[in-house]
């Protein structure tokens, strides 16, 4: 029963975050690049003020899977690295924490670009 409740939270919060993105698209007609940037900045902000961990505790994938989570890891990485490495952490922290995601995105994009060809929209 508890696991079901967990997944329900994930669904509801993830869905609401995405619906908020859609609302921005409908009302302001912005492009997907701007949507992604907006949500990354929201994530960075939430982590910087320390709110993110509270949300992530009960929302789990509902907030980690949206790109907000990507922004939060960038900020979290920077903060953590500053604590351990001092000044250098400002530069190394963000990318170190997100290296897996970025490398995966680049690597798989390159791989599939070599394999597949673009399809015309129907």
């Amino acid at each position: 029963m508890e696991i079901f409740l967990d997944y329900l939270w994930v669904f509801l919060i993830g869905g609401l975050v995405c619906a908020f993105g859609e609302l921005l698209i409908i009302t302001t007609n912005i492009t997907s690049a701007r949507i992604l940037v907006t949500f990354v900045l929201i994530g960075v902000f939430l982590e910087a003020v320390g709110l993110y961990d509270y949300i992530s505790d009960f929302a789990k994938a509902g907030i980690n899977v949206p790109i907000v989570g990507f922004g939060a890891s960038l900020a979290k990485g920077a903060i953590g690295a500053v604590k351990t490495h001092g000044f250098l952490g400002i530069f190394t922290g963000g990318l170190t924490a997100t290296a897996g995601g970025i490398a995966a995105a680049i690597g798989f994009a390159f791989l599939f670009a070599l394999i597949f060809k673009s399809h015309t929209k129907k």
Binding site: G14, G15, V17, C18, A19, F20, G21, E22, L23, L24, I25, S32, A33, I35, L36, F39, V65, P66, I67, V68, G69, F70, G101, A104, A105, I106, F108, A109, F110, F112, A113, L114, F116, K117, S118
Partner: peptide, 23 residues
């Protein structure tokens, strides 16, 4: 729409799609 742009999968899509397009 936003349902598939906002998750990390949308980020992946926005990197893969121009790569395939400009192959």
């Amino acid at each position: 729409g936003g349902g598939s742009i906002v998750p990390i999968t949308g980020f992946s899509n926005s990197i893969t799609s121009p790569s395939i397009e400009f192959k």
